[in-house]
Design a protein around this nucleic acid. Structure first.
Length: 193
DNA sequence: TGCCTGATTGCCT
DNA sequence: GGCAATCAGGCAA
């Protein structure tokens, strides 16, 4: 597979555009356990100011500080007392916006994903924001990491056509449930729900 | 200080 | 389909 790193300008696009353009891209993590690769098939945008479902809605805090930092970085947060969710920060500094990765198509390192997830089911390895974090071996110490650098990067396969996607309401939130900020590759079997 | 909720998941009925 | 697990942050008192 021929992969090429994304350019910096990618990270300066508006959050909604980034959420859509991340579809079809590859998330690559190299750890001492091995390499895992997943194709992004489902994302959600979280905006600033007008989006009460966003962690950034009430302003910058210790927890969400990464959202207000430089774009193209990792924002990872602890939720429900036991899980982590993985985001890519998007907007310029001081503007708290990010894109949540909700599902991946397992591409490489599948046996490692199965071991981490304690599950053999390919379809279920990365179908869900906390599941993909476990399968990819992403840990909270990667918070703030620059995704242009190892060990965790995002790349594209130039042979890929931009995928068709569907926009729907975001999942698992109780506020701003009307905003169509969830994007999923149309008909993809690895999309959550 | 105390209570409630959450960008979830998996187990139980 | 229902609900427990498990804890940090937000908000009321």
């Amino acid at each position: 597979m021929h992969l090429q790193l994304l350019g910096l300008d990618f990270y300066q696009q508006p959050t909604i555009a980034v959420a859509q353009h991340l579809l079809g891209k590859y998330l690559i993590h190299r750890s001492n356990e091995g390499k895992t690769v997943g194709r992004i098939v489902e994302t959600e945008g979280y905006l600033s100011g007008s989006d009460p479902a966003s962690h950034a809605f009430r302003g910058k805090t210790t927890r969400n500080a990464a959202m207000f930092g430089a774009p193209g970085r990792v924002y990872i947060y602890f939720i429900y007392g036991m899980y982590y969710c993985f985001n890519v920060t998007t907007a310029p500094e001081a503007i708290g916006e990010a894109v949540l990765l909700r599902a991946l198509d397992p591409v490489d390192g599948i046996s490692l994903m199965q071991a981490r997830r304690k599950s053999e089911k390919i379809d279920d390895l990365c179908r869900g924001p906390a599941k993909l974090v476990i399968a990819m071996g992403i840990t909270p110490d990667l918070g703030g990491h620059d995704l242009r650098a190892e060990p965790l990067t995002i790349a594209e396969d130039l042979r890929d056509e931009p995928p068709q996607f569907t926009a729907t309401a975001r999942i698992g939130i109780t506020r701003a449930t009307d905003l169509p900020l969830r994007y999923a590759i149309t008909g993809n079997r690895f999309v959550s729900r």
